[in-house]
Structures are given as structure tokens and as C-alpha cells.
Design a protein around this nucleic acid. Structure first.
Lengths: 324, 324
DNA sequence: GTGCTTATGCTCAGTATAAGCATATGCCAG
DNA sequence: CTGGCATATGCTTATACTGAGCATAAGCAC
């Protein structure tokens, strides 16, 4: 997590051919995927009536990109930004014919912030943009009703038999179409497949077609893809780093914590096992207090044990290590 | 793995303050961490006598950054690049006083290529740069002899008792100083800690001190940090994605495969368990042939089962899912 | 054949995970 | 003040996965 500042940079060792430097103007943007979980829904901060992620020019960055982003977000939202991580840098040529236009490089970041007022402007649920990603109440109907048939048609439209079967296999594995297990981490792959198959408005728009029939709410340019990248990253990260706590208030019940994870993962968890996991990993400790906001027996309040971050070097092996 | 090309980008929605665009010139570099495993050592492609990673200006990129990098590498090395992934984008201000100098953005990539002639120019073992990272023959002496004392001194030099104890804890966990388990994935954290503690030449150089006493072979600018990022990423990735095979010849024995993983991870594995893991995951299949290059019973030859990549959506849960 | 070397097969115990049962503790209606 | 309801929390069982080691197989050198 510690980040060294970049030191003086000597003339780059350019072995690559045709090293004509800085030949054309380059524009650098920052794009933020800002996430919070409120009222049981994972939300993302948007602008332009929910059609774009907040972005801005690079120059604002203070010491570092990360710090610039953090300052800006905290100023805008008045909520401290708990966790920031770089997502991806996009720099593909916009179009073949755009030789004269400046080339744009977009550096995207994922940021986590705490729960806040659910009605605050600009925050939208992830699942407006990706309705097929929320499996908390079972597989969403849109998959069987819209996506599966469209993906099947896309597979059949492939030129060769080999490609057809490969597409069928890939679609089935990615969307859990046959009995396969749903894998919530494949958010980006799913969006990319829908894009490839022409089932999202962004692709239809690009091809000059009507945007009718696109699944989920679209965004400007490739912002929805960037959001998918952020969701996928967060869904993966939550499993091996204690980042959920960045989304929680200082104290919380285990059920609240579970609901937060469920909102992000888009699936329901086994209550008792979740609680066992939290306890045995010693990620939380009781505050002593209890809450009785809802019906039923009052729940104990917990807080995150910041200490574990230092104590343990976290993360585990998956390799069959030899005894040392 | 599929990558959509970025589409036409409308005027960015700039909510950030002070949106004066393209105010100052920006230089964009690509930096490659190119890895291969030959003769039992993980190697990285370098230039300038091993003191820098290959880099070049951004303009060369063809359709996309990734494709540009791939073309360039294949042209240079005459070896196909198996796997390419973006590592990180560095864009911190070089120095406070560099207001007039162009700001440099470096986009780094990790690329894997197959085994080739061990003596080929430019390829150096990772462990020249990070001697403390190779634990295949037990913990390297440099840790106990050089790093541990220096880290202890660094911890004691902290101003408050709280910071001292925090540094001690962190150093112990990161370098497995007390009985703690070595975690090979912490390569980047370890390098950053050594930098912070002033035990690497890059830091000494920056502070205007003699570079004497720096641990491991240094590199230009922050190239060694980028290499550490690449190593850490590869060590983590190897555990949940079948990327090792990008480093192997088309057919191989299980022991060769194991040696390759060991070289990357910097630790030895349990032979039988490694073999069981490979078989139960169905990542490989027998070719029918055998080899008898060394002593002992000839080993069966295997090849990678490309099919699994499509069949399975890979990666697994770590959440206590509720029965659906 | 004997002995050396590596390959390959199999076992056993310890630990983690999935799933479900049982009990505790509050509130509320009557 | 009692029974019903709702949630919290504790505990058990079967199964899968892992770490570690033993045992056997199949080549080669002598």
C-alpha cells in the first residue's frame, strides 16, 4: 500500500524503432469508479444523469495520480475515501480515421467510500447498468429471457462449426447457462461478450444501429466497460483483502457486514459460515455494544481489527509447498 | 482476455476543478517486463547492460498499446509473446522543481515468452536484482546477514515508540524474520520497504549518498520497482491462472513444469502433491511420448490442455455461498 | 543382478468447507 | 406474563482439500 514517489527520470532507453518522441498531442484523463454500499445496493458515483463516470484532466494531480484523485473526491463528496487502487489504463486508438484528433489516454481508478445518505445525487446502483449481475434473488430473468437467446443466435452466426461450438461453450461457462456454477468475478468478461455479440447499446451505437434492445443501462463511450472492470476487481479483491471494511461504518453487526458483501458479490451467503469465517480470521472484534434496530434478538456490534493488516502478511499459498 | 477497442470519445465530462486541458506537454512511455524461464532461472529482458528494462515511446503503438508492445517484442526477440498484461501506470511528479520539464507517464506491461537459449544477450536472472527473493535453497543468507540488521536499525530510528514497534512488526511479517512464514507474493512490498529503509542503491542515489551497501543489483530510475511489480504479479497469477504454460515448450515433463513454477515462486514444491494438483485440475494431458534426458526412469511427456480455458470459467469462490 | 536415480502411485491424518440443526434473546400481541 | 415471531448465535456432521510421507516402477551403469 505504501507508494514511493517516482524519482528523477533519466532519458528513457529507447530501443524501440522509430523513436520520434512527442510527435502528436496526447490527452490524459482520470476516470474514477467510486463505490459505496447503501441501503443494500452497491452504488457507483456518476455524472450526467447517470450516463458517465466522473472524470477529469490529468493536470490536477498533485504529487501523484492517486493523491490527486483522493483530494478531488473528498472535496466533492465530503466523505473520506478509504481505499484507492488503479484499475487500468486505456489508450487504444479511438478510430482509424482519427489521425488528426489528439490521442486520449484514460487512467481509471477504483475508490471505496463509506455508507452515506442513500438519496444523495449521482449515486446509482451497479445493477441498473448490469441487471444480469445481481443473483441475490436467484438468477435474474433477463438472462434466460434476453441474453441466452441472443447469445445463442450470436454463436450460431459464427462462420465455422468450430467457432460456433467455441462460442457456445464460452457463453455457457461465462453466463452459467447449462448447469454450470455462476462465477461472480466474470463481470468484465460478460460485458465484453455481450459487446462482441452486439447485445449492448454501446456496440449498437458504434455500428450506427438503433440502441433498442441493448441490455442494461448504457453509458457514454466505454465507461460501462470501466465500471465492469471496477466491479470485477472489487468482487475478486474482497475475497483476499479486508477491503469490505472501507465500505462499512466504524461499528456494525455481522449481518450488516454480510449484507454488504452480498451486495457487492451479487449473491447470498450462508449466514453461520460467514460468521465463522469472520471470527476465525480474527478480522473483527466485539465492541461490547449491541444494536436492536430491527426485530428479533439484538446483535452484537463489531469493529474492524486494523491490527491484522500489520500482524499478518495476509494472503495464502495455493502451491503444494515442500516442507522447509 | 478479449479486448474491445476504445470507441469514439465524446468531450470528457469534467467536473474536476480547474479544467484547463493539455496545459503542459506530457510524455508517454511503455516499459516492458519480459519474462522467460531458462536453465532453472527466471529471467528478465534488459537493456543497457542489465541496468534498465526495455522501454520506448508510446507513439509506436499500433491499434492498441498491447498490440504495439507485442509486435515490437516479437520483432526484437524472434520469439512469440505468449501472454501480455498491463502492470501499472506510473505518473507521479518527478520532482517538485520540475515544473518546466515534461511530465512523464510510464505504462508498464508484463509479457511472457517461451524458453530459449540461456546465453542470449540481455536476459538476466531476476535474482541478481532481488537476491533475497530466491528461497529454493533455503532462506538466502543476505536476509539474516544484511537485511535483518539494517531493517532493525531502521525500525529503531523511528521517532516514536509506536512507530518503532509498527516497523518491527511490518518488517518481521514481510521478510519472515521471526518464525513467520515466507510469503513469496510480497516482492513489491519488500522492495518498497528496503527503499524506505534506505537499503537499496536507488534510494541512496536519490539522497545523494554513495550507493555502497545497497542490496541487490540496482537499475535505472524506478525500473527495479517495476520489475518487482511484475514478479509479484506473476507469482500471484501463477496460482489461479494457467500462465506457466506460456513459459514452457509445447511438451514437457511434470518435473520440468514443476521446476519452472519453482523458479518463478522462488521456493521448492512437494513433488507428489504438485503432480496430483496438475492431474486433478486436468490442465495437462499425456502426449504418449516419454523422455529420458537425465538419469532414472523416463518421464512421460505432457502438453497443456488449451480446452480447459474455454470449458471452465476457472477461479473459485472463497465466500461461504448459500445453497441456491 | 546390484545399486543408483528419477518417476509414479497410494495412504493417512489434519484442516477447511458446505450444510443444516438447535438454542438464545429480544419484541409484540393478546 | 405468555406464546409467537424474528433474528442472533452456537454446534455438529459429512465431505473435500492439503501436507507429508511410504512404497513401487523403470530406466541406466557396472
Amino acid at each position: 500500500m505504501a507508494s514511493l514517489s517516482r524519482e528523477a527520470f533519466p532519458p528513457a532507453v529507447s530501443i524501440m524503432p522509430g523513436s520520434q518522441r512527442a510527435s502528436r498531442s496526447v490527452v490524459v484523463d482520470l476516470i474514477a469508479v467510486l463505490a459505496a454500499v447503501t441501503a443494500g445496493a452497491p452504488r457507483v458515483m456518476t455524472v450526467a444523469k447517470g450516463s458517465a463516470l466522473p472524470s477529469g484532466p490529468f493536470e490536477l494531480a498533485h504529487r501523484s495520480l492517486q493523491q490527486g484523485l483522493r483530494d478531488w473526491v473528498e472535496q466533492q463528496t465530503h466523505h473520506p475515501l478509504g481505499y484507492v487502487e488503479q484499475l487500468y489504463t486505456f489508450a487504444d486508438k479511438d478510430r482509424a480515421d482519427a489521425d488528426t484528433a489528439p490521442r486520449t489516454i484514460s487512467i481509471s481508478y477504483l475508490g471505496l467510500t463509506r455508507e452515506h445518505d442513500a438519496a444523495e445525487a449521482g449515486w446509482h446502483s451497479w445493477y441498473e447498468y448490469f441487471p444480469w449481475e445481481d443473483h441475490r434473488a436467484g438468477p435474474p430473468p433477463v438472462i434466460a429471457k434476453v441474453l441466452a437467446p441472443a447469445l445463442a443466435a450470436w454463436a450460431e452466426a459464427a462462420p465455422t462449426a468450430g467457432m460456433r461450438s467455441e462460442r457456445r461453450l464460452r457463453a455457457a461457462a461465462t453466463f452459467a447457462l447449462d448447469g454450470a456454477r455462476w462465477n461472480e468475478e466474470l463481470t468484465l468478461q460478460r460485458y465484453e461478450m455481450l459487446y462482441e455479440a452486439g447485445i449492448v447499446a454501446e456496440r449498437l451505437r458504434r455500428e450506427g444501429h438503433s440502441e433498442e434492445g441493448g441490455a442494461g443501462r448504457p453509458m457514454i463511450a466505454d465507461h460501462r466497460r470501466i465500471l465492469a472492470t471496477g466491479i470485477a476487481r472489487l468482487r475478486a479483491k474482497i475475497k483476499y483483502r479486508p477491503v469490505v471494511f472501507e465500505l462499512m461504518p466504524p461499528t456494525f453487526t455481522l449481518l450488516q457486514l454480510q449484507r454488504c458483501v452480498e451486495a457487492i458479490a451479487g449473491r447470498t451467503l450462508h449466514k453461520q459460515n460467514f460468521r465463522r469465517l469472520m471470527e476465525q480470521q480474527e478480522l473483527v472484534e466485539e465492541t461490547g455494544g449491541t444494536t436492536s434496530e430491527s426485530l428479533g434478538r439484538p446483535a452484537k456490534l463489531f469493529r474492524f481489527r486494523h491490527a491484522v493488516v500489520e500482524e499478518r502478511a495476509l494472503a495464502g499459498t495455493k502451491l503444494p509447498l515442500a516442507p522447509t
